[in-house]
Amino acid sequence: MREIVFDTETTGLSFSGGDRLVEIGCVELVNRVETGRTFHCYFNPERAMAAEAQAVHGLSDTFLSDKPLFAEKVEELIDFLEDAPLVAHNAGFDFGFLNGELGQCGRPLVAMERMVDTLQIARQRHPGAKHTLDALCTRFGVDRSHRVLHGALLDAQLLAQVYVELTGGRQIGLTLVSDEPEPIVTQTVASVVRPPRPFAANAAELAAHAAFLKEIADPLWLAEA
């Protein structure tokens, strides 16, 4: 099964309030294994970056000023996403901005049925624990030492590892997937029964045993009951 783990960075918290998407990072999984295919792009939001948002991801107005508009890359993004389920942490936020940008471009919105929210999965699996991406990386031993600031592609790559752990662990990747049905192996009892082996003592062995018994003083088996 093909899935896309993705993350976004924005100018703020509300698309309807005028904030825009400035970065998206996507990681392709097939049968919960990373394929190495990714999609990553920065976008010029055509508005000023909020200081609070820049403190989170470090993307400045100057850095984004020469980046393409979302509309200029939307077809590449749609081609990469195809119809795969989309996995995100606190997915409602990312879907809100993704669909906001798609709608503004006149493109079909992503159906909410495709949304997989790792935050909700984590809350169900580990109630009462911390559920931030950093906390989940620590829980599952995912190395995040290179995560100084938030970054869409980096966070998507970390989340992909967390998602695998949340949904069964790394042993999933050890399964050999094949389109061919596995053969049914049957074996009758007769096929594993070995013929009896002869263990009877020969004449020389019987004589040696009798001589040995004669050397035992007061054997217990001859004692009076």
Rank of each mutant, 00 (worst) to 15 (best):
H150L: 13
A225E: 15
A88F: 02
H146L: 13
C41G: 09
A55R: 14
V33F: 07
V30P: 00
D117A: 00
S178H: 14
D94N: 04
H57I: 02
E28V: 01
V87L: 13
R139D: 06
R20D: 00
L206Q: 14
A91H: 07
V162N: 11
M115F: 01
A55P: 01
E205H: 11
P195I: 00
L166C: 12
A84L: 00
A200L: 10
L64A: 07
A160M: 10
A50M: 12
E9R: 07
P127Q: 13
E101D: 05
F80E: 04
A203S: 09
A201C: 12
G25M: 05
G18N: 12
P181K: 11
E28P: 08
T35I: 01
A152E: 02
Q161H: 14
A55D: 14
T11Y: 13
G141P: 07
G151A: 11
A204P: 10
A55E: 15
F95S: 00
R144W: 13
F199A: 03
P68W: 05
L158C: 06
S60V: 02
T186C: 11
V74K: 06
M1N: 06
L98V: 11
D134W: 00
A211K: 15
S16L: 07
Y163F: 14
I216W: 13
I172T: 07
G92P: 09
N90I: 03
N31E: 15
S60T: 15
A71R: 15
E180L: 11
L176E: 14
E34Y: 00
E101L: 03
P181C: 12
E34R: 12
A208H: 03
D83N: 13
V164W: 10
I4G: 06
A53E: 04
E75N: 14
D143I: 03
G36I: 07
E9Y: 01
G12F: 05
A204I: 06
L158P: 04
F93M: 06
K130L: 10
H150F: 06
F15W: 15
Q104H: 11
T11E: 06
I24S: 02
A51M: 11
C26H: 10
Q124N: 03
C105P: 03
F97D: 00
L98H: 01
P181I: 12
L64S: 05
I4T: 06
H89K: 07
P181S: 14
L77I: 09
T167E: 09
E3Q: 14
K67W: 11
Q54Y: 06
L166I: 02
E182R: 15
G36W: 01
M112D: 15
G36F: 04
L153G: 09
V193W: 00
V193A: 03
E113W: 07
K130C: 03
H126M: 09
L69W: 05
Q120C: 08
C105G: 05
F43R: 03
